[in-house]
Computed example of a mutant assay.
Amino acid sequence: MNPLDEELDRRRSATGEHRLPPTVAVVVAAATYALLPSSLQLGPRLIVPIVELALLLALIATNPRRMTRETKWSRIVSVVQAAIVIVTNLVALGLLITTLMDPAAEGGSLLLAALQIWSTNVIGFGLLYWELDRGGPVARRKLRRDAMPPADWRFSQDENDDAVREVAVGASKSSGWVPTFVDYLYLSLTNSSAFSPTDTMPLTSRAKMLMGLQASAALLTSLLVIARAVGSLGGG
């Protein structure tokens, strides 16, 4: 059998990726947005969370437990859902900046809101990275390597095939490993914390632009928190 077919059989035998982790992430993002101060939200408090959860229910109906099926519309809905999380969160960040420029603004709730925005930033970009890379979660399980779209990110497992045995056993080429949502969430978390790539490198222009946007938003949020905290200490 062709080595590519053998490797594909290993990926398919692992069944589809579990639906639970991204589902929990979307629910957390929706709840976090709903708990933001009303001055940082677009429209009525529950509009955005309801839209996000409605899209989530449509996706769950397509793949209730495992990511095994995909249609053109389900893929569009998945990307739109991640985009809504990101865009509404960036708008909230912009409104937070405007609010913090007012010296009379209440500091405690705004600092908590900054943490909520930072956390949602991690979730939103993690979802988008997960949907975009190599054609998405279903394609990563179902397609041969030579049929996948070009990778947007290079994980350490993608280059460990010639390492020592206990490391190489988990390499992409030899084991059929493909990244799951947790891997992209970790990528998003480290990018928001370090403001740059760590162990996973962006390969395409869109990956670099998205990571740059995410890192900039995370850095700005962190600077706002620091500036507000220093200002509060000085005022005290």
Rank of each mutant, 00 (worst) to 15 (best):
M1V: 10
M1K: 08
E7I: 15
D9Q: 05
D9C: 00
A14T: 13
E17A: 13
P22C: 07
V24A: 01
A25M: 01
V26G: 13
V26M: 11
A30G: 13
Y33F: 14
Y33A: 14
A34P: 08
A34W: 12
P37N: 01
L40Q: 07
Q41G: 10
L42P: 13
G43M: 07
L46K: 06
L53M: 05
L55D: 00
L59Q: 02
N63L: 06
N63H: 06
P64K: 08
R65I: 01
R66G: 06
E70L: 08
I76G: 03
V77E: 11
V77M: 12
V80L: 12
Q81F: 00
A83R: 00
V91D: 04
L95W: 03
L100D: 08
M101F: 10
E106T: 01
A114G: 06
L115D: 01
W118P: 11
S119V: 11
N121G: 14
I123P: 00
Y129N: 09
W130I: 03
E131P: 03
L132R: 12
L132K: 14
G136M: 10
R140I: 07
R141S: 04
L143E: 13
L143S: 12
L143K: 14
D146Q: 07
A151T: 10
D152I: 09
N160S: 13
D161N: 06
D162C: 12
R165D: 15
A168G: 07
A168D: 09
K173I: 12
S174G: 07
S174E: 09
G176T: 03
F181R: 00
F181H: 01
Y186P: 12
S188D: 01
N191H: 11
S192I: 09
A194I: 05
F195W: 10
S196R: 14
D199M: 13
T200G: 08
M201H: 02
M209G: 14
L210Y: 05
L213F: 01
Q214A: 04
A215W: 07
S216K: 00
S216T: 01
A217R: 00
L220T: 13
S222K: 03
A227S: 08
R228G: 03
A229P: 08
G231H: 04
S232Y: 13
L233I: 08
